[in-house]
Amino acid sequence: MMEWINNMNCCHIAFMALIVNMVSLAIYASYNVRLDKKEMNLEKRTKELEKKNGKEQHEIDKLNQKIEKLEKLNNLLVEKVLGKSKIKK
C-alpha cells in the first residue's frame, strides 16, 4: 500500500480529483433535477388552487350581491310596514 502511495505522481492525484469532482457534479445534477420536478409540481398545484380560488371568489361575490339585494328588499319591506303602521295609528 505504501509503495502505491509513494509511486503516485501529480497525474494520479489530478485524475482522482477529477473523478471526485465528476461524482459530486452528478450528485448535484440529480439533486437539481429532483428540485425542478418538485417546483413544476408545485407550480401546477398552485395554478389549480388559484383557479379553484377564482371560482370560489366568484361564487362569494354572487352571494354577496344576493345578500345586498335581500337586505335592500328587507329594508323596503320594513319601511313599508313601519310606514303603514304609522299611518294606521
Rank of each mutant, 00 (worst) to 15 (best):
1 M>G: 15
2 M>G: 07
3 E>A: 03
3 E>K: 07
4 W>G: 04
5 I>C: 13
5 I>G: 11
6 N>F: 15
6 N>L: 15
8 M>W: 14
8 M>I: 06
9 N>S: 10
10 C>F: 08
10 C>D: 14
12 H>E: 13
12 H>A: 10
13 I>A: 15
13 I>W: 06
13 I>M: 08
13 I>P: 13
14 A>M: 04
15 F>Y: 08
16 M>L: 15
16 M>R: 14
16 M>N: 14
17 A>N: 13
18 L>K: 13
18 L>A: 12
21 N>C: 11
22 M>W: 05
22 M>P: 04
23 V>E: 01
23 V>C: 02
25 L>F: 13
28 Y>Q: 06
28 Y>E: 02
28 Y>T: 05
29 A>S: 12
29 A>T: 05
30 S>A: 08
30 S>L: 12
31 Y>A: 09
32 N>V: 06
32 N>L: 05
32 N>H: 04
32 N>I: 08
33 V>S: 05
33 V>L: 02
34 R>F: 10
34 R>L: 15
35 L>W: 06
36 D>C: 02
37 K>V: 15
37 K>Q: 05
38 K>A: 15
38 K>I: 11
38 K>P: 01
39 E>Q: 07
40 M>K: 14
41 N>T: 04
41 N>Q: 08
41 N>H: 04
41 N>C: 01
42 L>W: 07
42 L>P: 01
43 E>T: 07
43 E>P: 06
44 K>E: 03
44 K>P: 07
45 R>V: 00
45 R>W: 00
45 R>A: 02
45 R>F: 00
46 T>R: 15
47 K>G: 00
48 E>C: 03
48 E>Q: 05
48 E>I: 00
49 L>F: 02
49 L>K: 02
49 L>V: 02
50 E>M: 11
50 E>Q: 09
51 K>C: 02
52 K>W: 03
54 G>I: 00
55 K>N: 08
55 K>P: 07
55 K>F: 03
55 K>E: 09
57 Q>N: 09
57 Q>I: 03
57 Q>Y: 09
58 H>W: 00
58 H>Y: 01
59 E>P: 00
59 E>A: 13
61 D>P: 04
61 D>F: 03
63 L>H: 11
64 N>R: 14
65 Q>I: 05
65 Q>C: 12
66 K>F: 08
67 I>L: 15
67 I>E: 09
68 E>C: 05
68 E>F: 10
69 K>T: 01
69 K>I: 00
69 K>L: 08
70 L>W: 10
70 L>R: 04
71 E>F: 09
71 E>L: 10
72 K>I: 05
73 L>T: 01
73 L>K: 13
76 L>F: 06
79 E>K: 04
79 E>N: 04
80 K>R: 04
80 K>P: 15
81 V>S: 01
82 L>G: 11
82 L>D: 11
82 L>R: 04
83 G>T: 01
84 K>E: 13
84 K>M: 02
85 S>V: 10
85 S>N: 13
87 I>G: 12
87 I>K: 15
87 I>L: 11
88 K>W: 15
89 K>T: 07
89 K>H: 09
89 K>M: 14
